[in-house]
């Protein structure tokens, strides 16, 4: 079933404001309110959450009444691949190490583009990029990223 609304952008944005505002208000209930003169940690968030819900209601009502733009198509494939590649990087960095995490990040994200071809040139570029990152960030700037992670530590004995 498809509901027809006048301004879908406003309706969705309004619902998001109401949901987020509601959630933050609910969360703030756990913090001491205090008084206006002696505000507790729960005072400001509650005020803001109420304002946000109010803005959400206005947006929702406007979306139901006033004709607005349609929502453009969402590029699901690039969105999913870009986000997934970064999640993978985060998951792999400490476990498998920087090298593996970068390979995953680059290959998964690159597959989001139609033009990308996995050819020798791409491999060379990837190797160069990984080499640069290891040299510049790990060796140069001292960012504490394991080059080989805990999973691959047994391999470290093979290294010179």
């Amino acid at each position: 079933m498809r509901l027809h609304v006048a301004g879908p952008k406003d309706v969705w944005a309004g619902l998001i404001y109401i949901a987020f505002g509601g959630l933050m208000f609910w969360g703030a209930l756990g913090y001491r309110l205090g008084t206006a003169g002696r505000m507790g940690p729960g005072y400001f968030p509650r005020v803001l959450a109420v304002i946000l819900v109010a803005i959400g209601v206005v947006a929702l009502v406007r979306g139901l009444i006033v004709r607005g733009e349609r929502i453009d198509g969402i590029a699901w494939k690039p969105l999913a691949l870009i986000l997934a590649s970064s999640v993978l990087f985060g998951l792999l960095l400490e476990r498998a190490g920087l090298v593996v995490a970068l390979v995953a990040l680059v290959l998964v994200s690159a597959s989001a583009s139609k033009e990308f071809r996995f050819d020798p040139k791409a491999v060379a570029g990837l190797v160069a990029l990984i080499g640069f990152c290891v040299a510049a960030f790990v060796k140069g700037l001292g960012v504490p990223m394991p080059i080989l992670g805990t999973w691959l530590e047994p391999l470290a004995v093979l290294a010179p």
Binding site: S86, L102, L105, V106, A110, K114, E115, F116, G125, L129
Partner: peptide, 11 residues
């Protein structure tokens, strides 16, 4: 080309 650029930016 952008398809080489954006994975690098992401890194």
């Amino acid at each position: 080309p952008y398809h080489l650029l954006y994975p690098t930016i992401l890194v």
